[in-house]
Design a protein around this nucleic acid. Structure first.
Lengths: 100, 100
DNA sequence: TCTACATTTTGCCATTTCGCCAAACGAGGA
DNA sequence: TCCTCGTTTGGCGAAATGGCAAAATGTAGA
C-alpha cells in the first residue's frame, strides 16, 4: 500500500511540535502580547499571573518550537514573536469556533 | 495593572484546545489525508499503522475540537475535514521551519 | 569583592497523554 | 434470532506536561 499523505513523517513531527507548543492558553497569551512588540520575562509574568519559573518554561517551549526568539540585554531577556503568520490562523479558528 | 492581551481568557482556552488537538503527528496526518476527501476509520488505520482503537481516539480528539466531522453510513464511519483553513497555516509553518 | 536583581534550572508531585489489548456497541446479513 | 464486521469505550502502564518552590546562573552596580 502506498502512502496517501502528501508529506513525510518528519514533516508531520515538526509541524506537530509547533502546534503542540501553541496548545496552551498561557502560551497563546504570550503570542498575543508579543504580536504587538517584544516583552521581558518579568512583564509576561505579571501578565499571566503565574510563577516566573513557570513562565520561563513556557517561553522555552515556544522558543524551541521556533515561535519566539529571545534577546538578552543587560539583566533582562526580551522575547519577540518570530512567526507572525500564527495570527492569521487565529482568524481561521474563530470562524470555525463560531459555528460551534 | 490592566490586561495587555486583546482576547479574553476563554478565547485563549478554546483556541488552545484546537491547537492542542493538532499537536500530534498522527492527527496531522489524518488532517492531511482528509484534505483530499472523506475516509473511513479503517482506511485511516491502515494509513497510520496504529491500532484501530488508537486511531478512533485520535479522531475523537479532532472531532471534539471541531476539526473533523463524522458520518455513519452502514457499518462504516466516514470522517471529513471541517476546517480546511488549517492547510493554509501549514504553509506558514513551513516557511518558518525552513529557516531553522 | 559583595550584593541585588532577572532569569533559568532542578526537583517534586498531580494530572494528562498515548499506545495496546480486551470488551462492548451497533448495523447488516444469514 | 445469531453471527460478523467496523467502530468505540474502558483499563492499564509508560511517558510527558504543568505548576510551584528552591537552588543555581549570570549580569550590573556599589
Amino acid at each position: 500500500m502506498q502512502p496517501l499523505y502528501t508529506q513525510n513523517i518528519k514533516d508531520f513531527r515538526s509541524r506537530a511540535a509547533v502546534m503542540k507548543a501553541l496548545g496552551h492558553p498561557a502560551r497563546l497569551m504570550v503570542v498575543d502580547v508579543l504580536a504587538r512588540g517584544e516583552r521581558c520575562v518579568c512583564e509576561l509574568t505579571d501578565l499571566l499571573g503565574l510563577d516566573i519559573s513557570t513562565v520561563s518554561k513556557h517561553l522555552r517551549v515556544l522558543k524551541k518550537a521556533g515561535i519566539v526568539s529571545d534577546d538578552k540585554r543587560g539583566k533582562q531577556v526580551f522575547y519577540s514573536l518570530r512567526m507572525p503568520c500564527v495570527l492569521r490562523f487565529f482568524e481561521c479558528l474563530e470562524s470555525v469556533l463560531a459555528q460551534g
